[in-house]
């Protein structure tokens, strides 16, 4: 398993190289675009050149990249093109919001999804088909649209919950929770449905395996079969899809945070992208990539714990 984790860490290097290069390479393909976005389309060519020089965009790409990497290694992600704020500071403040949102929705969809999936595998029949319906809804309803629909019903019509905004957990835990309920639900539906379906299929599959019958016939209790033997064997698939839920939730936060005006990384990326603030968007990309790498390492460890064959690798 150490080998596996080591491999992940080695692969992280090319992944980070690619992520940090994307913006620089693309700017090379579209010279002037970035400066125009910031200055507006009425800018003169002279102004554009001046700004590009100021931002270092006229340097050869490898030099830009080396500068950027040098900065990253010393904790400096550059400064915003728009207001000169330090990218690392801005994103550092916003990170907890996104982690709360995505973390809570992953936990919520995992608990409910595994519960419903297991129930439907055991009961089958109508319970089994409920999962298919949920899966269909989760697939079809775009999260940000669901978010708007929920706001329309629960905030606008019923006044039960706040429509937008965020309160810090440590300032006012009650308000913090109220502000996160709708965002978390909107972000969870897709993951919940996929987890429920995967769990049902995995549990059905494991339950039909020979060893379950053999263990039962030789006296293993039904409780132990489900909670010990089925769960551990179905666990690998379920853990995989839960980790994918976290990763897709991370990227979907771009939409959900925008709908609810949550001050997280995703909403920052979308407003900065509109404003042409490359260092800020690039910074979010780097943050997300690092989070994905960390999640993958954690998952590898989980695999090792669940599957002895992986542990030996």
């Amino acid at each position: 398993m150490l080998k596996l984790i080591l491999y992940r860490l080695v692969m992280a290097i090319p992944i980070l190289v690619v992520v940090t290069m994307i913006a620089i390479i693309l700017i090379g393909f579209a010279p002037g675009n970035a400066a125009f976005t910031i200055l507006g389309s009425s800018a003169t060519l002279e102004q554009v050149h001046e700004l590009e020089h100021k931002l270092g965009l006229d340097l050869p790409w490898y030099e830009q990249w080396l500068r950027y990497i040098g900065g990253v290694l010393s904790g400096d992600l550059g400064t915003s093109y728009i207001n000169g704020a330090k990218v690392a500071d801005v994103l550092g403040q916003r990170l907890p919001v996104t982690l709360w949102l995505v973390g809570l929705s992953t936990i919520g969809s995992a608990v409910l999804g595994v519960g419903l999936g297991t129930l439907s595998a055991i009961r089958q029949g109508a319970w089994g088909r409920v999962v298919d319906v949920v899966a269909m809804l989760g697939l079809a309803i775009p999260g940000f649209w669901l978010a708007l629909a929920l706001v329309s019903v629960f905030a606008v019509d019923l006044h039960w919950l706040p429509a937008i905004g965020y309160t810090d957990l440590f300032k006012n835990p009650g308000q913090w929770m109220l502000h996160l309920i709708l965002p978390v639900i909107s972000l969870s539906l897709a993951g919940f449905s996929v987890i429920a379906k995967t769990t049902r299929d995995a549990v059905l599959d494991v339950r039909s395996r020979d060893f379950i019958r053999t263990l039962r016939a030789n006296g293993m209790s039904r409780g132990s079969l489900l909670f010990k033997h089925v769960s551990k064997n179905a666990g690998v698939n379920i853990i995989t899809v839960i980790s994918l839920t976290f990763i897709t939730g991370l990227t979907a936060s771009v939409f959900i945070e925008t709908v609810f005006s949550l001050p997280g990384l995703g909403s920052q990326a979308s407003t900065s992208s509109l404003a042409g603030d490359i260092p800020m968007v690039e910074g979010v990309a780097l943050y997300f990539t690092v989070i994905v790498i960390i999640v993958n390492v954690v998952i590898d460890i989980a695999y090792g714990l669940l599957n002895p064959k992986v542990r030996a690798a």
Binding site: P14, A23, S273, V292
Partner: peptide
């Protein structure tokens, strides 16, 4: 396979935002 593995690890929507920041 290695290139796919690297691309698979990229946060796709954010990469789209990076692209759209430049190709407005």
């Amino acid at each position: 396979s290695k290139i796919s593995e690297i691309v698979l690890a990229l946060p796709n929507i954010i990469i789209l935002l990076v692209v759209l920041t430049i190709f407005t």
